[in-house]
Simulated assay, not measured.
Amino acid sequence: MSSYAKELEVAQLAVQRAAILTKRVFHEKAKGTVSKDDKSPVTIGDFGAQALIISALKANFPEDEIVAEEEAAQLKEDSNLRQTIWELVKTTSLEDEAAEKVLGGAIKSEDDLLTMIDYGNSKGGAKGRIWAIDPIDGTKGFLRGGQYAVCLALMVDGDVKVGVLGCPNLPVDDAAPLTAGQESGQTDEGMGCLFSGVLSEGATSRPLTTGALSKEKSISMKAIKDIAAATFCESVEAGHSAHGDQAEIAKKLGITNPSVRMDSQAKYASIARGAGDIYLRLPVSATYQEKIWDHAAGDLIVREAGGVVTDIKGNRLDFTVGRTLANNKGVVAAPAAAHPKVLEVVKEVLGQK
């Protein structure tokens, strides 16, 4: 029995239910949308997914703190947007009876909706039980029908204990290789995975469903026999990760496979199950600080799948200092045996600048 069995079950069902909501938003509202304005599908999906997850956490773990991306100030000023999200949340909860029995915490009014969203205002830190939520990680991926993730992690005294990623547009087949085509134009057929990890207990994947949790499978990173044959994952946006530096690192490692660019923590999930090998997120700004909700779940899942995750200096990601990774720069994630070589080349390339 997992030492965090209840936390894991609640997190999995909450993320799955939030993923169902985001898929509904995409199919009903997002096709053809390209911007994140105030009434965009991303706004609707972000608020709705965050409300559903927080209501489940508060019903089951009322004393826990929550760090989440969104706050309800905008909804308090916009009654039409608030009502749209409330109707979406209400409908999704009613249709998901299997989750509702475990999750409870029904949102019964628009006021409940606002309250739940604003519970995500914890400042984080090194003490106590703190959940980190990113309701839609990968804004542009979501809008284009490409990769995005619903992300949830539990930290206890700054250490990530449970991580769950819902990736609605990743193939169910763990062995499916990464391709650039996975970044746009998705259908639902054969797509949608729920990834989980518990500290010292391994990592799993299972197909996303609309009811009870489906059967899980253990996942592990692929052993890299020849690093030159490895596949890189990197961000789609050049503003998120330095593509030029990554190309130079690949060259020095002898890697000739084109890098696969995708949004969100789907990159962590992909390398954790061996569909890709190495994930680099290299700094593009001296002052930018990564948000903890963009990395906590993926960091744990990769480590539990046999990988190593550090920053560009070789330090573990530090989730104890608030809402950001203020003590880290960049991310280097790779199988344990390959990580030292990858990190050595990262330091070499970035040290030349």
Rank of each mutant, 00 (worst) to 15 (best):
M1G: 11
S2M: 13
S3H: 13
Y4V: 04
A5S: 15
K6M: 12
V10Q: 06
A11Y: 11
Q12A: 13
Q12R: 15
L13W: 05
A14K: 10
A18C: 08
A19K: 01
L21M: 07
T22Y: 02
H27G: 07
T33P: 01
T33S: 11
V34G: 12
D37S: 06
D37K: 05
S40N: 04
V42F: 04
G45N: 02
D46S: 03
D46Q: 01
G48R: 06
G48T: 10
A49G: 09
S55N: 09
A59T: 09
N60F: 11
V67S: 00
V67K: 00
A68K: 10
L81N: 11
L88H: 06
L88P: 06
A99E: 01
V102W: 09
L103F: 08
G104W: 05
A106N: 13
I107L: 14
E110P: 04
D111F: 07
T115P: 04
T115I: 13
I117F: 04
G120E: 07
S122R: 03
G124W: 15
G125T: 06
A126S: 15
A132F: 01
D134H: 01
I136G: 00
K140Q: 14
G141K: 09
G146W: 02
Q147K: 11
A149I: 03
C151N: 15
A153Y: 05
A153H: 02
M155F: 04
D157A: 00
G158C: 11
G158E: 07
D159R: 14
K161P: 01
V162S: 00
G163T: 05
V164Y: 04
L165K: 12
C167I: 14
P168I: 03
L170R: 09
P171L: 08
P171S: 09
V172F: 03
D174C: 02
P177F: 11
S184I: 04
S184P: 01
G185H: 03
T187W: 00
D188F: 10
E189L: 08
M191P: 02
V198T: 07
L199M: 13
L199Y: 09
S200R: 10
S205A: 14
L208K: 00
T210S: 13
A212F: 02
L213F: 13
K217C: 09
A223E: 11
K225R: 15
A228Q: 11
A229G: 09
A230G: 13
T231Y: 09
T231A: 04
S235M: 10
G239P: 04
A247Y: 06
N257W: 06
D263Y: 13
D263C: 11
S264W: 08
S264Y: 08
Y268F: 15
S270R: 13
S270C: 12
R273S: 09
G274P: 08
G276Y: 00
Y288L: 12
Q289R: 14
Q289P: 03
K291H: 12
I292H: 03
W293I: 01
D294Q: 14
A297H: 04
G298L: 10
E304Q: 15
A305I: 06
G314A: 05
N315V: 03
R316H: 11
D318P: 12
F319T: 07
G330Y: 04
G330A: 05
A338S: 15
L343A: 07
L343K: 03
K347I: 02
L350D: 00
G351N: 00
Q352D: 09
